[in-house]
Amino acid sequence: MKREERRQEIVDLLIASRAVDLDDLASRFAVSKMTIHRDLDDLERAGVLRKVRGGATIDPGTQFESDFRFRELQEADVKRSIAAAAAELVEPGMTVMINDGSMAAILGDVLARKRPLTIITNNAAIIERNKGETGATLITVGGVYSAKFNAYLGIVAEEALSRLRADIAFVSAPAVSGSLAYHMDESVVRSKRAMIASSRHSCLLVNSRRFGHTALHVLAELNEFGTIISDKPLPGETTVELEGGQTSIKIASGGPNDF
């Protein structure tokens, strides 16, 4: 197993159990304890875990779970499948808005094959990867940089978004329950809502693990989105809430289901 693959699996184990044991990791990956020490040291410097005696941990509800650096390492395969499904909604020549978030950052990479495109974003990862790329007109909205979300937020970003128009906006959410999508940060909610308002069509990207959870702020009613993309079918209560509406449901591993 390559070093990066091993470290990805360590993060996945932390997500599942909140703590990992040094001896168990060395045995699982058939490497020395010193190798695991180096892995944990590097991941701690990246801000995605805390080393403790005999292993490492993350604390529920702390900055680790919401920090972009941690989320960027979570469930990469799921994010890629959702991003690939989202890219099917895009045709060359479109103007696309993409919000903050690690899943959205992957979508920014996937859309490379859809060029020429105009990309409007506050996502610093997308900005960094697409600046200077041939065939991509990149519009950055400015604002106050947030290291936590690796994005530009605030009044400047919201005002810029309100004066632009896109064919489609891709918006992600860390929590969905019933008929509502949620987010823990008010400034992020405002920027996402500004993108929804400034686009002809809006698409919600949500990992199935996020269903059944809430956060401090309501982001939107699910029926405000033209399309919802996830990696698994939506929960029954959510499906019932959307029945008879205009929202299209697309499962990344399968085909779309329209109500």
Rank of each mutant, 00 (worst) to 15 (best):
R113D: 14
R80S: 12
K33W: 02
V48H: 10
T118D: 00
N123F: 01
D100A: 15
R80F: 11
A76K: 15
G93W: 11
A83M: 07
V141E: 00
R129V: 00
T57S: 09
D109V: 05
S102Y: 07
L107N: 02
R71C: 03
G93P: 04
F70L: 10
S66T: 07
E65P: 07
L73N: 06
E133R: 08
K114H: 07
R115Y: 01
I119P: 02
L43M: 14
A105F: 12
D39T: 03
A124R: 12
M97T: 02
I139A: 05
I106Q: 08
S66L: 06
E91I: 09
P116N: 11
V48L: 12
T95E: 13
G93T: 14
E75F: 08
G108F: 05
V141L: 00
E128K: 11
I127G: 06
E133F: 01
G135E: 02
L117S: 06
L107D: 03
R80C: 08
L43D: 11
I119A: 00
S102W: 07
R113V: 12
D41Y: 13
L89R: 05
A87I: 02
R45M: 08
G93A: 09
V144I: 10
A136W: 11
P60L: 15
I98G: 00
F70V: 05
A125L: 05
L73F: 12
N122H: 13
M103T: 14
T62S: 15
T62Q: 13
L40Y: 12
D77I: 13
L107S: 05
I58R: 02
M97I: 03
